[in-house]
Write a protein that binds this DNA or RNA. Structure first.
Length: 565
RNA sequence: UGGGCUAUCGUUCAAUUGGCAGGACACCGGAUUCUGGCUCCGAUAAUCAAAGUUCGAGUCUUUGUAGCCCAGCCA
């Protein structure tokens, strides 16, 4: 019996929630919890972001707090409104509710500029004329301390004048930067006089040409958090080193100080989740766009038919910790099946059709069977399925020479046509090459509805559609985009692109029951015994198109594979 | 050869803070079934290493080992 109830799951307290509870207990933020999800609008959101969304919005909800959506848009050369729109849509799809708190780091540019001047006045920041290469040289190495820039000890007045002229557009890109004056000998390279502002004569997607200097992440992020009154600033592990600077900025400026806590980012087998790689797959045409169903982006998952609930369940199950982990892709598939099994209506579709002729079924006869859209749950309703003398069944459901334990159709073997009749294979028509072209059988009229009054059992039940009434459809069968478990870690001289799975997309012409014309675009259904499929927006009135979301578990394939060994 | 982070079943997350190492996924075996689906039952399976403290260590100490992050005017 499939469960129609959502499974009752006990929430385990991860280290972040434990920390928040401790903060609440000590009254640290007066019991307030306010998080933020801060994507940079320079690409589409993917499963890694989903983890962060579930965390930030989830924590806010659990602790009666709020979560802001904040676009971290400090680099005009990489960002675009196309991305902010997709991000909004994806966060909303996952149920993230940011109310009217849709913020942009670029909203704070004026305030950030004032803070920068304040730092200069405090003698904590200076304008450097070194080139980018020189700055790198002066920074030192992992094992050697850096050297101070010759411009490090300019007067406050000179720094202020220079910084104002940077803002006024007097200087070309790359000629000057504003740097924090911290410690060129710090063992933490982030603290060796980090760059705060750089000159970019570029049009920003929101502020247009108002600015030609733009603040860096390390300066913008803590102050944005502070301005918004964030309590817990949650980010991924690669920012651990930056936390010292995060704290320095807020302490030096003596402003409200949220706490940054880092967690491990998500890695998935058979998947790449780096923005650089995803953008390359799109721009170089390895996939058909950001929402190509083979992509790990949220828009692709949505198009593929993955329900947002499955992604929430996945994010809950992968847990939250500080050790870098690689999660098995199979867990995501499990979550998808788990949800869809309880929610997707059932239909019959034949993906690899072969003709089945029932010799003793009169040519002019037809049956119509009313079948439930979900077994044992009438609330899903039902549909009518026509039955005729000639049907299509799946080639996989017939074997000329059946292996042991093969329960499906084979010469002399009897099976049930789901919800219809028992049939026994009597003959096979082959073409010149010996391929099965047509299967002949006889049916037992007494088994109408799918049960024999004599109590006779059959081992196998197969799905079918009427050849006369079937609807042709295009079905896109997806597999992993990569053929190796870890495409991020490949041998010398190879790249992840060398491991793209050539079979990641296979398109077949299928036959559907006629009533499937009513399935709506974006709806995910089960093709019985095969998998879950989502009607794609490429569908036309003449030709519906379905994307395979995920297969059903296939125990028989496993048994057969084992037998073959 | 600097600093930081991490280390528990195949995978991932736990372990009341020193008291029988547990769950989920995967795998294996079985029951059930008009989906070889679902459901149900069962089995296998781990504390990075060494030494120490202790009646008792995944947890504390010491010394190692391995992996990851940092030398953008990216985030």
């Amino acid at each position: 019996m499939p469960k129609t109830q959502e499974p009752e799951v006990k929430e385990s307290t991860d280290f972040i929630r434990a920390k928040i509870m401790a903060d609440n207990a000590s009254g640290r933020f007066n019991g307030k919890v306010h998080t933020r999800f801060p994507p940079e609008p320079n690409g589409y959101l993917h499963l890694g972001h989903a983890k962060s969304i579930c965390l930030n919005f989830g924590v806010a909800k659990e602790f009666n707090g709020l979560c802001n959506l904040r676009f971290d848009d400090t680099n005009p050369t990489k960002e675009d409104t196309e991305y902010v729109e997709s991000i909004r849509e994806d966060v909303r799809w996952l149920g993230g509710d940011w109310g009217d708190r849709e913020f942009y780091a670029s909203n704070y540019f004026d305030k950030l500029y004032e803070y920068a001047e304040q730092l200069i006045k405090m003698g904590k920041a200076y304008v450097d004329d070194l080139t980018a290469d020189e700055i790198r040289e002066y920074r030192g190495t992992l094992t050697q301390p850096g050297r101070e820039s010759p411009y490090r000890n300019r007067s406050v007045e000179e720094n202020l004048d220079l910084f104002r002229r940077m803002r006024a557009g007097e200087f070309a890109d790359g000629t000057h930067v504003l740097r924090a004056k911290i410690d060129m000998a710090s063992p933490n390279l982030v603290m060796r006089d980090p760059t705060l502002y750089r000159i970019r004569h570029a049009t920003h997607h929101r502020t247009g040409d108002k600015w030609c200097i733009y603040p860096m992440y390390d300066f913008t992020h803590p102050l944005s958090d502070s301005i918004e009154g964030i309590t817990h600033s949650l980010c991924t592990l690669e920012f651990v080193n930056n936390r010292e600077l995060y704290n320095w900025v807020l302490e030096t400026l003596n402003v409200y100080h949220p706490e940054q806590t880092e967690f491990a980012r998500l890695n998935l087998t058979y998947t790449v989740l780096s923005k650089r790689k995803l953008i390359q797959l799109v721009k170089e045409g390895y996939v058909k766009g950001w929402d190509d169903p083979r992509m790990p982006t949220l828009s692709a998952l949505r198009r593929r038919g993955v329900p947002p609930e499955a992604i929430h369940d996945f994010c809950r199950r992968i847990g939250m910790a500080k050790s870098e982990a690689v999660v098995e892709y199979g867990l995501l598939e499990f979550c998808i099946r788990e949800y869809l099994n309880a929610h997707a209506p059932r239909w019959m579709a034949v993906l690899n059709p072969v003709r089945l002729v029932i010799d003793n079924y009169p040519e002019d006869q037809e049956d119509v069977f009313e079948m439930p859209l979900y077994p044992d749950d009438d609330s899903f309703g039902s549909r009518k399925v026509p039955f005729t003398r000639e049907l299509y069944i799946d080639r996989d459901d017939f074997r000329l020479d059946p292996p042991k334990k093969y329960y499906r159709l084979a010469p002399g073997q009897e099976v049930r046509l789901r919800y219809a009749y028992f049939v026994t294979c009597t003959d096979v028509v082959k073409d010149a090459e010996g391929n099965v072209q047509e299967i002949h059988c006889t049916y037992d009229p007494a088994s109408r509805g799918g049960n024999s009054p004599d109590g006779r059992k059959v081992k196998g039940t197969i799905h079918w559609v009427s050849a006369k009434y079937a609807l042709p459809a295009e079905v896109r069968l997806y597999e992993q985009l990569f053929s190796v478990a870890d495409p991020n870690n490949v041998p010398e001289g190879k790249t992840f692109l060398d491991y793209i799975n050539p079979d990641s997309l296979r398109t077949v012409s299928a036959r559907l029951e006629p009533a499937m014309a009513q399935i709506r675009t974006g709806e995910t259904v089960q093709f019985e015994r095969v998998g879950y499929f989502c009607k794609d927006r490429d569908s036309t009135d003449e030709l519906p198109v379905f994307n395979r979301t995920v297969t059903l578990r296939d125990t028989w394939a496993k048994i057969e594979k084992k037998g073959a060994k």
